[in-house]
Amino acid sequence: MDFLGIILAVIGAALSVTLASIGSSKGVGMVGEASTPVLIDDPSKFSRLLILQLLPGTQGLYGLVVTVMVMLNIGLLGGNAPTLDFKTGLLYFFACLPVAFGGMTSAILQARVAVTGVTVVAKKYSDSTKAIISATLVEFYALLCFIASLLMVMNIPAVTGT
């Protein structure tokens, strides 16, 4: 049963980047789709639209950072096949969940706000900064999940005493 700990940790690491990236790719795609007709009409609005499109993309990055941290901590990036007890593996698994699920959900919801922002850019360009701020507010919760996951991952060795 020695391998169970490492399997759980790797599943957690995989989930954190996969789910967060699914959310980000859906979100960036959705805002990109919404931006295209505005760009066709007026290409000069590209810069504001780019910011809106980029916003849901950060969650995937948060997921990747957590994944890398987990891999570093368990020694998977060192090239050796590490061993991990079940309890530690389970701790890594749960530590990855906030950024995995929080990242995925917030990316999709942030994209919805950004899509409405695209309408603001199209119709009232002078107010488009407000739309960007609205979309940025959702980012705060993705950030909370990321920090929570990161703190947990960084402190697991200390908790388990390994």
Binding site: M30, P37, V38, I40, D41, V118, T119, A122, K123
Partner: peptide
């Protein structure tokens, strides 16, 4: 609904 992102934006641009 997410399938409609392009379509909604496209008609809103026309509504200007």
């Amino acid at each position: 609904e997410t399938q409609y992102a392009y379509a909604v934006s496209a008609v809103r641009v026309r509504q200007i």
